[in-house]
């Protein structure tokens, strides 16, 4: 096994495994960046289209600190994403539960869901812009639409796929409908629903970008469009890397939320909440 070999090799050398790996990562990264910079300076890569790393760094400095013109755009995009996400996913979860809990409705809604699932949702963007006009409302509508489906479908399937045996147990113990929902269906469905929410959040950012590409008024999407139009590729790459960071933060945030809300889905969360509950019980006793 290669991993075992690496372990042995590292024990012989002075550095720890972690440090050596980090060093290797850094070396690879710097080599790529260095080659890129070199290629651009030697004229192998047209700097007009493939910006130099040094220029991208300078653009970061420019748009964040010297001009600071990216902040309002980040704010604009982030607020759109957040409001669209909240509205769309709340709608998705509630409608998903509504449809999922009623077999009749489910049967009649299903074909439409299949058709709508095959449609690329973002493709509706021009239609929504035409219907709602330019401005924030159509952008939010697009994000809502994009955020609606993953939670809707996951809620639907989460609510439907309740464990038969446990359902029987609940019924035979005489659980009320409310108890059934609160203690069985919801805990079972929540991890799936949260997975849908995470998917929705990532697509929300894409939805916002597409809306901004088409409208070209404000937001990070419009900024990237403008910079690329002016062939200021270094700045548009700085914006794209900003989106990388934003995407990463969103990803981390959703992960955190998932662990908080559906804590029983992970060992660590179970222990954390279990300990807290135990303490509360001891206090009562």
């Amino acid at each position: 096994m290669p991993a075992a070999d690496a372990d042995r090799g590292d024990r012989r050398s002075g550095l720890g495994l972690q440090q050596r790996r980090a060093l290797n990562h850094a070396a690879i990264f710097l080599t790529i960046v260095g080659l890129w910079e070199l290629g651009s300076r030697m004229g192998w890569l047209d700097p007009l289209f493939y910006p130099r790393p040094s220029n991208i760094l300078r653009s970061f400095w420019l748009i964040y600190i010297e001009n600071g013109n990216i902040w309002p755009e980040i704010y604009s995009t982030a607020s759109l994403v957040l409001s669209g996400f909240v509205a769309g996913s709340v709608l998705g979860v509630s409608l998903g539960a509504l449809v999922g809990l009623n077999g009749m409705v489910r049967r009649f809604v299903k074909p439409y869901v299949i058709v709508l699932e095959a449609t690329p949702r973002i493709a509706v963007a021009p239609l929504l812009i035409a219907a709602l006009g330019f401005g924030a409302s159509s952008k939010i509508a697009i994000i809502m639409l994009v955020c609606f489906f993953p939670p809707f479908i996951n809620t639907l399937s989460g609510v439907v796929n309740v464990d038969e045996q446990r359902l029987e147990l609940f019924r035979s113990l005489g659980a009320s409908k409310l108890q059934l929902m609160r203690k069985l269906v919801l805990p079972d469905a929540l991890p799936v629903i949260m997975a849908g929410e995470r998917l929705a959040m990532t697509s929300a950012l894409s939805g916002a970008l597409v809306a901004e590409f088409i409208q070209r008024d404000q937001g990070l999407g419009a900024l990237i469009m403008t910079y690329t139009r002016n062939l200021n590729m270094a700045s548009s790459f700085a914006c794209i890397f900003t989106l990388t960071i934003l995407g990463f933060l969103i990803f981390r945030f959703m992960e955190w939320l998932d662990r908080r809300i559906a804590f029983w889905n992970s060992e660590e969360g179970l222990q954390r909440v279990g300990a807290r509950r135990r303490k509360r019980m001891e206090g009562l006793a």
Binding site: H25, F49, I122, T202, L205, S206, L209, V210, F213, L220, G221, I224, M225, Y227, T228, R229, L231, M233, S236, F237, C239, I240, F241, L243, T244, G247, F248, I250, F251
Partner: peptide, 21 residues
């Protein structure tokens, strides 16, 4: 790591750049 970076970046953000390229 590069695959992860590619994942968290919304790929659609690259649209204008890809068109320029």
């Amino acid at each position: 790591p590069y695959a992860i970076v590619l994942n968290v970046t919304p790929g659609i953000a690259l649209t204008p750049v890809v068109i320029a390229w």
